[in-house]
Write a protein that binds this DNA or RNA. Structure first.
Length: 286
DNA sequence: CAAACTACCTGACTGC
DNA sequence: TGCAGTCAGGTAGTTT
């Protein structure tokens, strides 16, 4: 599932393949892919034709393409969204059954394809959004942003009246963290997912955010985490960070620190993986 | 106002 | 073999 490192891998691919190019034709094959654009698919397409992409930016799991008129295209991969570079003619690759949007350019080069099996992702047009789309103004600065401030994030985390994992997944506290890196950060910081965020010492809150930052940086170096074909870079390649996971997806495997089998518990309609010895549950949850 | 809950989606997999 | 049920899970919108 694309979290911050995976989205950053995609962003870098788009920097190479999208920046400086001008749209000639946009085909929305499934209107759900642009459902967040209130004007509808036809308007979305017409707004893009003739526009040039100046720069590809990211905050948390959101991407946006700053256009030459000060507007932007805002994109989210959801759970299964992919941007792929189409084959150059005369090569022909079979269309994915999940192809949602095809973007063609005036330079005759390869198309950009938005492919999304579960259709939770999508594109929209953001007026005046080149610097930061107003639609994502509520999303916190992510730990890979040069302006990220650790003390601000620590204060925001400790101010939440909920469990530490819920708070880590809250994109208005720290952005970019999803279920995989939340579990990995909690394992590294030896914290149980139900530990109240407000009960963390400043040092503990700092430790778990630093752990999240480190694990996401390491995943980025590895090209991201891929369990299946649902997450791939723009060239179709998979990342290999899944080999480095200590907790997530490791139910029954020995904790790399103490050897106790990793446990899985239901949490927020998904799963939490943790070491029951290294990450003791708080009294309140027992 | 903040926290919690739910809808949105498809395909792989499990159990009967 | 088939079919119902489960799971994966990020975000916006709704409810508490």
């Amino acid at each position: 599932m694309p979290e911050l490192p995976e989205v950053e891998v995609v962003r870098r691919g788009l920097v190479d393949h999208l920046q400086g190019r001008r749209f000639q034709q946009i085909d929305v094959l499934n209107p759900r892919a642009v459902r967040r654009h209130l004007g509808g698919p036809a308007e979305f397409s017409s707004l893009l034709v003739g526009r040039r992409v100046d720069v590809v930016r990211r905050r948390g799991k959101y991407l946006w393409w700053a256009l030459d008129n000060g507007d932007a295209v805002l994109a989210h991969l959801g759970m299964s969204g992919q941007f792929r570079i189409g084959a150059l003619p005369p090569l022909v690759i079979p269309d994915s059954p999940h192809l949602r949007v095809r973007l063609a350019f005036d330079d005759g080069g390869a198309d950009l394809l938005f492919i999304d099996q579960r259709t939770f992702g999508g594109l929209s047009y953001s007026e005046g959004g080149a610097d930061l789309p107003s639609e994502i103004a509520h999303i916190a600065i992510d730990p890979l942003d040069p302006t990220f401030d650790l003390d601000t994030a620590v204060a925001a985390l400790r101010a939440k009246k909920t469990g530490v994992k819920r708070a880590l997944l809250d994109q208005t506290v720290v952005s970019g963290i999803g279920n995989i890196y939340a579990d990995e950060a909690l394992w590294r910081a030896r914290l149980h997912y139900e530990r109240p965020a407000s009960s963390l010492t400043r040092a503990q809150a700092r430790e778990v955010i630093v752990a999240a930052t480190e694990v996401m940086n390491q995943a980025l170096v590895a090209g991201g985490t891929s369990f299946d074909a649902l997450y791939v870079a723009v060239n179709g390649e998979s990342g290999y960070f899944d080999r480095s996971l200590n907790a997530y997806g490791q139910e029954g495997e020995p904790c790399p620190r103490c050897g106790t089998p990793i446990r899985r518990e239901a949490f927020m309609n998904r799963s939490s993986f943790f070491c029951p010895v290294c990450q003791k549950a708080p009294r309140s949850s027992r």
